[in-house]
């Protein structure tokens, strides 16, 4: 069976001041293609560290992390950048749009960092329009982030995450800053993407949101404490 991503005995130590912290103590988890996983856990459980590693923003101290067939754990900084650009789409709790850019320009950003720096052509233009329509912002392309509501900003972020057609979408509390109605809309969009075959890994502490995923992973003290839907 081929996996979208595979985590094998991952460990991460770091120094907090002069105190060594073992943030991950051996995490193994497989993400098959088309998976939708919600990672849950209290703060300090290691879920943020895991997400950073999954997002190729950091390298593990020990263990392996495979995206498709490539081992990310020993890559150089430049290679990590490439992996993030090509294979991973990020969705953040606080949207993280670039404030001086319009919606269109924000969606374009990952295109600028593709390897070889190709120029943005007709194909990319139409893809951007397609994505904007998909998230329902086709008529707001020249707006700036501050002119949009939270839900709209998050949808721009989703379009941005999709522009390079990544295998994995990493969502860090995607609905954390949104009201329940908007939350529903965003989750609807993510579910649709998942139905279209994309692998989604989402960190959340809201059970209602987590329930919508195909499976739930609970973390505690740097290890996976359990899997499955935990009601309440």
């Amino acid at each position: 069976m081929s996996f979208a991503a595979q985590v094998i005995d991952l460990e991460k130590d770091y120094m907090l001041g002069s105190v060594p912290v073992r943030a991950l103590r051996g995490v193994s988890i497989d993400f098959p293609h088309g998976d939708f996983v919600a990672i849950m856990g209290s703060s300090g459980s290691g879920k943020s560290t895991l997400l950073n590693l999954l997002g190729a923003l950091d390298r593990p101290t020990r263990g392996n992390y495979l995206i498709g067939d490539r081992d990310v754990s020993r890559m150089t900084d430049d290679e990590l950048s490439e992996i993030r650009n090509e294979r991973i789409g990020f969705i953040f709790q606080s949207y993280n749009l670039i404030p001086q850019y319009t919606v269109l320009e924000n969606i374009e950003v990952p295109l600028h960092y593709r390897s070889g720096y190709p120029t943005i052509g007709q194909v990319e233009q139409s893809r951007i329009m397609e994505l904007a329509d998909l998230v329902g912002l086709g008529d707001r392309m020249d707006h700036r982030p501050f002119q949009l509501s939270g839900g709209q900003q998050q949808r721009v972020a989703i379009a941005r995450a999709l522009v390079n057609d990544p295998q994995i979408i990493l969502a860090d509390e995607p609905t954390g800053n949104l009201d329940s109605k908007t939350e529903e809309e965003i989750m609807e969009t993510l579910l649709r993407l998942n139905r279209e075959g994309r692998t989604i890994i989402m960190v959340t502490h809201e059970t209602s949101v987590a329930k919508l995923a195909k499976r739930q992973v609970y973390m505690k003290d740097g290890v996976i404490a359990g899997e499955g839907v935990f009601p309440g």
Partner: peptide, 16 residues
């Protein structure tokens, strides 16, 4: 700093 973080997450290399 945050913008730099965003760009790095979206695939910008140090050199970029």
């Amino acid at each position: 700093t945050r913008e730099i973080g965003i760009r790095r997450a979206l695939g910008a290399k140090q050199q970029d």
